[in-house]
Design a binder for these strands. Structure first.
Lengths: 107, 107
DNA sequence: CTTTATTATCGTAATATTGCGATATATAAT
DNA sequence: ATTATATATCGCAATATTACGATAATAAAG
């Protein structure tokens, strides 16, 4: 078969999985780190930085966008992305509570 | 094409991605939550709980095992899994520092 | 309006993931 | 040792992801 059975799981579980999926590729981790390192949020020297093709970077950016983590403005010729801080904090909260809820005293 | 170019990224970026990949499926999120909810860490009523086939659950468990998050002991007839708390805390730390390092004052 | 530079989308190939039935392996009980 | 139960692995089919070249769309500059 090969279809993910998301309907078997609750909304929060699917939400965590959906966000984790975005972080589940080193390029996207690197992109997020790069954007946040720049004071002004330069966009596609990401191509240079990572060594991936422009089309590939654009695709990764669009994955990150899907979970609401990016905001983009034109700045001169360049489309300039930055991280949506509110959404970032929200996601941080979701993971934090997921991590702290889990604990087990084993057999 | 279609091969993830992991060699383009540093060890930490790949590590974050590898862990996120495990959390990137709602079944695995549910499994972790279930194991931690049980006082004693029951194993494969996971099949009942989730509605996935036994083979599928076993496969998901093995993904979680790969990043060192599970410990298993036989308890009577049953193989009983629990979360490796040390590793869990380590991973929590990795994500926490990833999340807190990222911030951006946008254009 | 045309040109130039930047980013997005399309089409396609390679690979990875998801899921399950069938079967093998492992442990406890008899 | 044999049986019964639980878990792991194999093989396969369906779908998803990753990557890139080619091309379209967008915006500033001339």
């Amino acid at each position: 078969m090969g279809v993910s059975k998301t309907q078997l799981f609750d909304q929060r579980q699917n939400e965590i999985a959906q966000i984790a999926r975005v972080l589940a590729h080193p390029a996207r981790v690197a992109i997020l780190q790069h954007i946040s390192r720049q004071d002004s949020c330069i966009c596609s020297d990401l191509v240079e930085e990572t060594g991936l093709a422009q089309a590939t970077i654009s695709q990764h950016l669009s994955e990150i966008k899907k979970i609401g983590l990016l905001r983009g403005n034109f700045q001169g010729r360049n489309l300039c992305y930055c991280i949506d801080t509110d959404r970032w904090n929200e996601i941080q909260g979701i993971f934090e509570s997921f991590f702290t809820r889990i604990s087990s005293q084993c057999c």
